[in-house]
Nucleic acid binder design. Structure first.
Lengths: 342, 342
DNA sequence: TTGAAAGCGCTAACAG
DNA sequence: CTGTTAGCGCTTTCAA
């Protein structure tokens, strides 16, 4: 790209004006006469002049850019959150740089450095699930760059410029399980993921609380912990159906697992929801495509993105007051009741 | 963010060196003594110094950043292509700015301007499906910024710095329909999208060619054009089943439509694949989750992203030779045969 | 209402 | 091996 791009100086020379005047005209400053502003605008248009944002950012000291770091862009969740972020950021006149950590701590660190080097004005991040060492985030905090965690947060990191926006997983699970209980189910199984991950721990807690509140005794054999893929859903359901007394409902921490369960149940000649009711978590696209359609907990993805940006902008605009704001915003997921549970 | 960030000048002052020496040391120049390099590195580390990429890019005249513009980040396709792009770009030491047009021409133009203003060194774009006016891309070409279209291209725009990487949709459709024909099907319906969109036009052409090559007459009543959502799949299948002679197979241009078809067929008490065989396009996640699982055409998403970046880098590195390179790279999709068609 | 000059932080000549 | 100097393109005083 050895091609020389146009600069304000080029426009200024052509028009017999000073660069500063051209700059002001382009910025729409009222100090410049209507006539000159018009002349400048016209030539810029004609020549397809594009302002060099790098130079402007360097000079002004801010880039009007936000950094986003997500573990990946597969599935429904992150793409939709990113959608919300992009939308809200653009409404506020901010650009967005999106990076993926691929669930890897090393790449996460590399990307954070990248964003810091690019002088983004704030960072929105959802942690890689392997992250153990948090030094890279301390650097962000120490440089006073506003930081908002979404969905996967880091509770240990505090600071006046650090916030988080998370989903109340326990409430979502509670709603799903309560719904099953209200439908008369009493032997409700739970397919959970590793309990050291917050989302699974909280969904598990919601499950337990719903049972307790409805005075239904907890049965250890009804909880299975696995990696919650479709395959393990199939396998775990086999195991549940082999119990002396089979469950009359299943709540899984992911939708993939519940699809696996559905397949197994049908293969055994049982009916959903008559024999076994099902509810999953995430409201993935396919939950509305299976037969029967699957009840699931919606995660308010888009809203999460929008709220995360709003919180970040608040930090950016009035750091003083914001210092007293809520450190942690909790969104409530919404149960979507479909055929599999009624 | 009124906090003053560290600069090379700060390091230089502390170490009693000139800024240029510090800059060279940080860049790992062999002209700097081991000892000084070490001193500089150590202090930079200690002070958490982050180079200001904006300033470096401004000075060097290139930003080491590529721009990506996609219509959206929903579904499987674009997120995976973006994955491939991000991966390959990062291998080559490039950062990536990702924007979404939300299938809107206005936003597409805005985002292209954004990327140009950010002085990206090249742009990878997949067109919004409403785009009619292409002036914004002419500006890119005129500024000699390498441009690679992927998946949704613009054939009218040519230039030595313009390339495209596309999928051979016709070949994918041809493979799917041939497979159905080889299975003995003769009345194969086709659910297509608007034919002014290339992907649908080409898939339709592949359908026709397969019929012709297998000496099966084309029947107009078996082709239905719609927007290919699940709902229209349901509706269109109703229409097909109401024909005097119903089809024994359906090939749809999207997976959503084929799911709709599947549901309708089952609701009518017919069996898949015995009564009607099905094949879709895109290999969406849910095609492996339905019952029966759905045959579909995989689009080589990740490979497309990687190839697009490789082509772009070629343009960037040796614009002269590259001028003679292929203007258009065509990837061949792969048919994944599942239960719905055998 | 416009212009001249300085400087954001960095790198690349050129000089020693 | 290191320092001096200049300038990337823009905005922002300060001065006219």
């Amino acid at each position: 790209m050895s091609h020389k791009r146009l600069s304000i100086a080029d426009l200024a020379k052509e028009l017999g004006l000073a660069a500063s005047t051209v700059s002001r005209a382009l910025a729409g400053s009222p100090q410049v006469s209507e006539a000159t502003t018009e002349r400048v605008r016209k030539l810029a248009e004609e020549w397809h002049y594009k302002p060099n944002q790098l130079a402007a950012a360097l000079r002004k000291g801010h880039s009007q850019t936000l950094g986003v770091l997500v573990p990946h862009l597969t599935g429904q969740f992150f793409p939709e959150v990113v959608n919300g972020i992009a939308l809200e950021a653009s409404r506020a006149g901010f650009n967005v740089m999106i990076c993926q950590s691929n669930e890897d701590e090393g790449q996460e660190k590399k990307n954070i450095d990248l964003l810091m080097n690019a002088r983004v004005e704030g960072i929105l991040v959802s942690l890689a699930n392997t992250t153990q060492n948090f030094a890279h985030f301390e650097a962000v905090r120490d440089q006073q760059v506003p930081l908002v965690f979404f969905d996967r947060e880091m509770e240990r990191l505090v600071g006046d410029q650090v916030r988080s926006v998370v989903l109340d997983d326990a409430a979502g699970a509670y709603a799903a399980v309560s719904h099953l209980l209200k439908g008369g189910r009493r032997r409700i199984a739970h397919m959970s993921g590793p309990l050291h991950l917050n989302i699974h721990k909280n969904r598990h807690a919601g499950y337990l609380k719903a049972l307790r509140d409805h005075h239904v005794p907890f049965r250890e054999e009804l909880v299975i912990i696995s990696d919650l893929t479709q395959e393990t859903g199939v396998h775990d359901m086999e195991q549940l159906l082999a119990l002396p007394e089979r469950p009359d409902a299943v709540f899984a921490s992911t939708d993939l697992a519940i699809v696996g369960a559905l397949q197994t149940i049908k293969r055994h000649g049982l009916r959903v929801p008559q024999d076994v009711a099902l509810a999953g978590f995430s409201n993935e696209l396919f939950t509305a495509l299976t037969e029967p359609t699957l009840t699931s907990v919606d995660q308010q993805c888009k809203q999460m993105g929008e709220v995360a940006v709003q919180v970040l902008l608040e930090l950016l605009n009035k750091p003083a007051q914001a210092a007293h704001g809520e450190r942690r915003i909790v969104l409530t997921p919404q149960l979507l009741v479909r055929e599999s549970s009624q």
